[in-house]
Amino acid sequence: MLQLDHLTLVEGSFRLQAHWSCDRGSRIAIMGPSGAGKSTLLSAIAGFFAPSEGRILWEGQDLGPIAPGDRPITILFQDQNLFPHLTVAQNLGLGLRPDLRLSPAELVRIDEALSRVGLASLGGRRPAQLSGGQASRAALARALLRARPILLLDEPFAALGPALRQEMLGLVREVADETGATVLMVTHDPADARALGGHLAFVADGTVAPPQPTEALLRDPPPALRAYLGEE
């Protein structure tokens, strides 16, 4: 279970509060206006932003003192998810062993992960030789290899077209199914939230509301969400 326990994030005059929890394996879309603090929330969970108050717990353990790389978390950023000077296979290898001293068995696993996301035989390429969709697949393949219990997505597919984005979300669901991961995904688009399935947490006025079932929430949105969606 992921618990945000009286969490308060402060950056200058900006304040964001969250107090809720979700079960292992949940799919939660985090939606809200620009500057509402969606990315800040993910940064805090990933360990890049220290909370002013409150705690973040995973299965009852406080994540506060744990370094980003040691948290039970894989995060995909908006961009720069691959190191441009390393090959795709090396980028995946970092997910297994940061010193890249990979055993033959680990190399096989990398190949399998690449095939799994449809990038078989592209392991030797540099990220610059990949299309945007292929780069996203490579980053997801690494998430598959790391198989951490929490997957954070900070709009990693924002630059892709609608069709490709739906394809990626399908892949995210598959990766999450295979690894049993809890997924938190930042998005602007209700279609993305629907595609992810599960729950929706709306961020506005300095608060991350507790996640509600997505379909029900979108069918009958509260006033703030209604204003954000622009529906009459």
Binding site: F48, P68, P98, D99
Partner: peptide
């Protein structure tokens, strides 16, 4: 952040 999230620290961070 990417390097931190992958525990790329110390000598491997320098090397890779």
């Amino acid at each position: 952040r990417l390097a931190d999230s992958l525990s790329l620290t110390g000598w491997p961070r320098l090397r890779w």
